[in-house]
Design a protein around this nucleic acid. Structure first.
Lengths: 223, 223
DNA sequence: AAAATAATGTGATTTAGGACACTAATCGGA
DNA sequence: TCCGATTAGTGTCCTAAATCACATTATTTT
């Protein structure tokens, strides 16, 4: 597919002219991943920028056998800008959690585009800044809140930022939800159960419906 | 002082030509802060980029009366790029923890420089990427390790990244060290005491000397 | 130098949440 | 359609760490 008529082009890529787009196009692979595939791996050499056109991807950090899900990345989004530009090796892994369509862009071409098109590079700066603000928020959330607050935050995040719906199918297992929120699998189970009992949410396996968003927000905010 | 002969210019600013530097110079204030002064405040409108030429600054996030120190920023460094470029209001505060010399750069001028000089903007992208990788590391550190591991990490950070010395004067109170590492004041006291008893460090008030770096590293890594 | 304020050290108590052990359910493949 | 393998729920126990409550020191302030 040609980049210039791509409908899921990134905000930044709208600043590229025909020549620059065709340059990108000829150095860019279009790939499809099924759910659960590794897109790139922590500690591997990083030589590509990934642009997610469709789907959800988790970025994870693993040390000493312990795994932390850093973020749920939703299309459209660049993946691994920091880890590809900021260092030679990947500081984290990326794994698809739904079916994913992605463009794999050569880092050298990407860097060249950053050099020649300042509108493009400014948009990249913007997105890096916004992503950092998100991380800081998440950092606070995880550090200063306790179990229920962190979990409430995650549910609201899925509802508001990922699915834009009160009811959704959680794309993660309880264990992964634990890795995302810094809880054990058991605590996730119990806390969700508790929310269910209190009629804040309804659960049916992975299907979750937020019944009392106000109360969930309160739990999230008060910690 | 003229920017073009400034010796503590940022890496990025070395890419600016004479004209661009003079543009920056005429829209830039040089300010000195004593330890403990607020440089910018969370929730205030953000209209300046701060460049720290000398000193240490803590960035802090406060919600519901709970405070989290996000990072100890050491000169030379830009402060608040994400919060100034990424949003209209500051998502966090910055407070000097030593005497600080800083340049206050108007955001509009800074943005203009990003637009006209792609080498400058590439270096800014680089520093944003590196800073994000640092945050991710810190995030993991704080999430997955327990008290002693987090504290060990902080001591090593001060020793290796801030002071480049085994002995140093901690620039934070026990309480602040708690806010940085996600511990209570009491646990910080007790754990430092414990390290002292085990002859891993020597303490005299704020003076800290690392005696057994190997063991401290091990505590840091194993969590 | 005295008084006020803030920072630190320490014991006792409480509690959130992790670990383990097991059962039940659900999924995915041949 | 059956079987092994993940995934989920739940009770019990235990530990790390927060909190409380003071005692004790530094540091400012006047």
């Amino acid at each position: 597919m040609k980049c210039y008529k791509c409908l899921s082009k990134s905000e930044a890529a709208h600043n590229l002219d025909a020549e620059q787009l065709s340059k990108m196009e000829s150095n860019c692979g279009q790939v499809k991943y099924e759910a659960g595939e590794v897109i790139f791996k922590q500690n591997a050499l990083s030589s590509n920028i990934i642009y997610i056109r469709k789907g959800l991807v988790k970025t994870t950090l693993e040390i000493n056998g312990r795994q932390q899900i850093l973020k749920i990345n939703k299309a459209p989004a660049y993946l691994g800008l920091p880890t590809t530009i900021g260092d030679k090796i990947n500081h984290y892994s990326a794994v698809s959690i739904t079916d994913v369509s992605a463009c794999i862009i050569d880092i050298n071409v990407f860097n060249e585009l950053l050099r020649v098109n300042s509108d493009f590079s400014y948009d990249i700066i913007l997105s890096l800044c916004k992503s950092e603000l998100e991380y800081l928020n998440a950092c606070f959330n995880r550090m200063q809140k306790q179990s229920a607050g962190r979990l409430a935050e995650s549910l609201l995040y899925f509802s508001e930022s990922i699915y834009n719906a009160d009811a959704f199918t959680l794309p993660l297992t309880r264990c992964e939800l634990g890795n995302l929120t810094g809880n054990s699998r058991e605590i996730v189970s119990r806390t969700l159960q508790k929310f269910h009992q209190d009629e804040i949410i309804a659960i049916d396996g992975k299907l979750i419906k937020i019944l009392d968003k106000k109360r969930l927000n309160q739990i999230c905010k008060s910690g």
